[in-house]
Write a protein that binds this DNA or RNA. Structure first.
Length: 1059
RNA sequence: GGGUCUGUAGCUCAGCUGGUUAGAGCGCUCGCCUGAUAAGCGGGAGGUCCCUGGUCCGAGUCCAGGCAGGCCCA
């Protein structure tokens, strides 16, 4: 009898049961089996790093990363979802440094690189269990058993092969470039790393005199030798010892001024801001006139003819400073480039830990930033300091350890990505970006301004750069495989067994193919972004094995990660695939927004406002979170993750779904409905059935269209609208059909329709909210059905079921009902009180609607009126009030339109209406005349007695609120029925219990009960109703109804089973 | 400083190609319905559609310039 189990109100317990059932039936595996022969839909997993805990922000992309593969799987595609873990890189090293209490590379060396690397390898898995638990609990189906791991020898071997390809084809080169460098970590950072660490800080800014010593070789003639200086400006005083030149803008105007007993030269445009004292301009000069001048640097560490000259440079501006730029090629990108172009000597008095060397004795051993003060004091003492101030600007800090970064000229290996810029742009043009502007804007601009990829890192835990250099002849080779390593190695046994990590692989020496000398590996590891960006190839250990799997799974149809990955993984995937395979790596990409905390701030570890996902998962469940994230806004909008925000969809959608199912379960169990046996005959389908089946079909088509274009939110909107129709109109209006006794055609039609709607709905919802969909499906499914909703085919919608005219009619009907409720509200008449009638007129935006009798009957029942009619207009009840129609007035009358509108409003409605019925009316508009046409005016309301009129969106409803005795008595009957039903419930009776009713009370109420015994009895399932209480009733209560009294007693008479 | 997105009710967000009175959900409040009852429905209050200018008969919508916020980049 109780065949359809109710869902239960605890979503957490329910979800846990579902998880257990998926596990025991191996549902994910089976969903792959089912589609194995199908067309492929390729998804790439952007690998997380498991040395940090998963936090809420990680859930956002994951929800989409699960939705689309699930959807495509149900559509019959084979969607392998190989998991992956990102395992290398500086973040891992830093965690370990913290754990073992060291803070620099020398300390790591002292600790032992081998031990250190082993610790890194362990650290990488620190939170693996948390990640797996989170993914499982959220219902994220991905193959973690066969996940790729970037630190394995096989993975690294593929990376080596890739790098060797690049090396052979000339993409790898060694450069000496100025890079942002972290002196604590001892390595250069790539641009995406630097970007994470900008902070506003106050730094000293100084203006410094550089005394002119010679005008030889320039067109400037020195007049006051010994007391004429170039005034230069910098925010990094510590770079002054490395000064080798000054740069000016050749096309700007400079001036020499006499001030405070000295002569200073600076850009004319800076006169106002850069000088502290009174001055007199001695002469104006073109910037180019200064080129070639020689000056005395503050710290003459070099005795080189090429140094200490004034040079012209394009990057000099006169926006700030003095227009004369201090140039230290070791510490600035522009400076370096100028140094290269002009053949300047290179001065680098700072070691790799950021401390001055002996070369600069004044501050030897001091960290450069700390030396600022000493240098400033020194300059002041020597009369070279002109001005000192604090200057607020953005300065980059190491994103992991918060040390200020220094711009350093350092050796680094690069990938010449700029060589394939055109291909990258071309490929990008074929990628569908969601949102589009990321592809054209953020990512497109990045590609337009592409720089070569700084690949090498002077660190320990990473993929070793596979370059060996010969000590003898300098030849460099890139090893492409383990076999090649063995073949070239001096010690082949070692090479065969060695782990492809530092320090082990460093011990492998090769024989130089050119000179037979010994080759040693360069000391670098590579940027970990290369690891993850190569997963398209390396996850299969291609080309060493799995060629077919690689081919089948490249490129990806879909990837999705957080927006921050634009220049990270999104870029490195594309760069590597373009260079190696000459193809794009993915066709569709969703970039998701940030996770915000309850008050709308970005969640970040440093702010300490990171929300633990478990807090909300345990409270509301995975489905709620999923539906919230999918339905609240577009994926790229940032999402607030406060409790209150997440709670909303629980009520809005999931509870309604649960209730709709529970309603079905209640009655279908009572009636023993069986979808396999009770099939609806087409001719038995009521208008409601045909309508909801049409809505189902059109919703299905809509959802499929949305999902095919990666618009999850639009799909959720459609699903919510459908569920509202199903619950608040179909079920609500069909209730009496289910309550009826027997199992005749109409009732079967109702059950079969609701069953069908529910089954299809949960199939539609399955990729979005897999748990509740499964729970309902399990309760509904028949023996022939798949054992999980996730093994079903996704519905696509039966086009022949779609009846748009009927859908419009019903939409109109619902609108009319809503107006009816509003009218009753205004008239203060309860719905329980029957009324004589209502009349509706109007149309929907789409056009005129004519409601069939069956639909009008539904409206009548819902509004509890005896009759609803649809009329062309309500003129007999309504006095027209004219309103202007701007759509016609505007185009025809132009500027006169507002005045015409005023005129129309001021006219007596009935008269104007009559006149317009004859044709155009002449209007006097403040001196001008214009014709007002019938279509220029619409007419609204005004009303007669005993009626209430309500109106919205072009639909009007008139409610007849006049009561007579008959209606009043009917109202009383409804009231009695309602009160007795409440008593039944209070008494704790089952809905199917039959009862006997006894009553004693006022004459009016007794008479009413007696006169309406049969209709009342059938409503309340009474087998007998009689006057007179006996005292043995199970439940008894005094009722006050309209100031009358009646005492009602109830007795159960057994349960005869289905009605 | 550059790119980009956003700015609409107390909160979260819709608003298509310009068109009469700008919407939904939540919250608040009043009421209703109830044989789905820890659901459901209706009403009400609540809005300078960020600002200024422009185009237009008409601008939340288009254009320009600001302001504020977010993200990315320097």
């Amino acid at each position: 009898m109780n065949r359809y189990e109710k869902l239960g109100k605890d979503p957490i317990a329910r979800e846990n049961e579902i998880l257990a059932s998926w596990q025991s039936t191996d549902a994910f595996r089976k969903s792959l089996e089912r589609t194995r022969g199908g067309p492929r839909y390729v998804f790439f997993e952007g690998p997380p790093t498991a040395n940090g805990k998963p936090h809420f922000g990680h859930l956002i992309p994951r929800v989409y990363k699960d939705l689309f593969p699930r959807y495509k799987t149900m559509r019959g595609f084979y969607v392998e979802r190989k998991g992956g873990w990102d395992t290398h890189g500086l973040p891992v090293e830093l965690e370990v440094e913290k754990a073992i209490g060291v803070n620099s590379k020398p300390e790591i060396e002292a600790y032992g690189v081998e031990r250190f690397v082993q610790r890194c390898k362990e650290s990488v898995w620190r939170y693996k269990a948390d990640w797996e638990r989170m993914m499982e609990r959220m219902g994220f189906w991905i193959d973690l058993e066969d996940a790729y791991v970037t630190y394995t020898d096989a993975y690294i071997e593929t990376l080596w092969w890739e790098l060797a390809q690049m090396f052979e084809r000339g993409f790898l080169y060694q450069g000496h470039k100025v890079l942002p460098y972290c002196p604590r970590c001892g390595t250069g950072l790539s641009s995406h790393e630097v970007a994470q660490g900008y902070r506003t800080v106050e730094d000293p800014s100084v203006s410094v005199r550089m005394r002119l010593v010679s005008d030889a070789g320039s067109s400037y003639k020195l007049e006051r030798s010994g007391r004429t200086s170039l005034l230069t400006w910098t925010t990094t005083p510590w770079t002054l010892p490395a000064n080798v030149a000054l740069a000016i803008a050749p096309d700007e105007v400079y001036v020499e001024v006499e001030t405070g007993g000295e002569r200073l030269i600076l850009a004319k445009a800076r006169l106002g801001d850069a000088l502290d004292h009174e001055y007199a301009v001695v002469r104006e000069l073109a910037g180019r006139d200064l080129v070639g001048l020689r000056y005395e640097p503050p710290y003459p560490l070099l005795s080189d003819e090429r140094a200490y000259r004034v040079l012209g440079a394009g990057f000099v501006n006169t926006e700030e400073g003095t227009g004369i730029v201090h140039t230290a090629p070791a510490f600035g990108e522009d400076d370096y480039a100028l140094g290269q172009a002009e053949g300047l000597p290179f001065l680098h008095p700072v070691d790799l830990r950021g401390r001055f060397t002996e070369e600069f004795a004044l501050c030897a051993g001091a960290f450069v930033k700390d030396a600022d003060r000493t240098i400033i004091e020194d300059l002041k003492g020597r009369g070279l300091l002109y001005r000192f101030a604090l200057y607020e600007h953005e300065y980059p800090f190491c994103w992991r350890c918060d040390t200020p970064l220094l711009y350093y000229a350092a050796d680094s290996w690069y990938i010449e990505t700029t060589a394939v810029k055109e291909e990258l742009l071309e490929h990008n043009a074929h990628i569908k970006w969601y949102p589009e502007h990321v592809g054209t804007g953020r990512f497109g601009d990045f590609l337009e301004n592409l720089k070569d990829w700084a690949l090498s890192r002077d660190r320990y835990w990473g993929t070793p750069l596979n370059l060996w250099v010969c000590a003898g002849c300098g030849k460099t080779i890139a090893v492409a495989s383990r076999d090649e390593l063995v073949e070239r190695a001096e010690d082949k046994a070692l090479a065969r067994a060695v782990e492809l990590h530092r320090p082990y692989v460093d011990a492998v020496r090769l024989v130089c193919p050119a000179c037979r000398g010994t080759m040693t590996r360069v000391p670098y590891v590579i940027d970990a972004w290369f690891d993850s960006g190569s997963m398209h190839t390396a996850q299969w250990h291609y080309p060493f094995e799995n060629e077919d799997r690689f081919r089948e799974n490249f490129p990806a149809d879909f990837i999705c990660e957080a927006m921050e990955q634009t220049r990270g993984w999104f870029y490195t995937l594309l760069a590597t695939s373009t260079i190696l395979h000459g193809e794009l790596a993915y066709r569709n990409v969703i970039a998701t927004g940030l996770g915000l905390d309850e008050s709308g701030l970005k969640m970040s570890k440093s702010k300490g406002n990171v929300i633990d996902p478990w807090q909300l998962i345990d409270l509301y469940g995975a489905d709620t979170l999923r539906w919230y994230l999918l339905s609240s806004s577009a994926p790229w909008n940032s999402k607030r993750l406060g409790e209150a925000d997440v709670k909303e969809p629980l009520y809005r959608f999931l509870d309604m779904l649960r209730n709709t199912y529970d309603f079905f379960a209640l009655y279908a169990s009572i009636d023993g409905f069986d979808a396999a046996v009770h099939r609806a005959r087409e001719e038995d389908l009521a208008v409601l059935d045909r309508w909801i089946l049409s809505r189902l079909a059109s919703t299905t088509q809509g959802v499929v269209t949305c999902l095919d274009s990666y618009d999850a939110m639009a799909a959720t909107v459609l699903l919510e609208a459908f569920l509202d129709d199903l619950s608040n109109w179909y079920v609500r209006s069909s209730r009496r059909r289910f309550w009826r006794g027997g199992m005749e055609g109409d009732k079967v039609a109702a059950y079969a329709t609701l069953y069908r709607a529910l089954v299809d709905l949960v199939r539609l919802c399955a990729p979005f909210v897999p748990f509740i969909s499964e729970a309902i499906f399990q309760r509904l499914r028949g023996v022939q059905d798949p054992e999980s909703v996730h093994l079903c085919e996704y519905p696509v919608g039966e086009a022949e079921r779609v009846d748009l005219a009927l859908e419009s009619q019903m939409a109109f009907a619902r609108k009319v009902v809503s107006l009816g409720h509003q009218a009753r509200n205004e008239a203060q008449i309860k719905v329980r009180q029957p009324l004589r009638g209502a009349a509706a007129c109007g149309s929907l935006a789409a056009g005129p609607i004519s409601l069939p009798e069956a639909v009008l009957a539904l409206v009548a029942v819902e509004l509890n009126v005896e009759r609803v009619e649809q009329v062309g207009n309500l003129d007999t009840y309504v006095q027209p009030v004219p309103a202007p129609n701007f759509r016609t007035l505007g185009p025809r009358l132009g500027p006169l339109a507002p005045r015409a509108a005023g005129w129309i409003k001021s006219q007596p409605g009935a008269l104007l209406k009559e006149q317009l019925a004859q044709g155009p009316v002449e209007a006097e508009l403040g001196g001008e005349r214009a014709a007002i046409l019938p279509e220029d005016v619409s007419f609204a309301t005004g009303l007669a007695d005993g009626f209430v009129l309500v109106e919205d969106a072009g639909i009007r409803l008139l409610l007849d609120t006049r009561l007579d005795e008959e209606l009043t008595e009917k109202g009383l009957v409804r009231e009695l029925v309602h009160r007795i039903q409440l008593l039944r419930k209070e008494a704790g009776f089952e809905v199917t219990d039959r009862i006997e009713v006894r009553y004693e009370g006022d004459r009016v109420l007794e008479a009413c009960l007696a006169a309406n015994r049969d209709p009342i009895a059938s409503e309340i399932l009474a087998v007998a109703m009689e006057s007179g209480l006996r005292g043995d009733e199970e439940h008894r209560q005094d009722l006050v109804i309209d100031e009358g009294h009646v005492t009602i007693g109830l007795v159960r008479v057994g349960r005869p089973g289905p009605r």
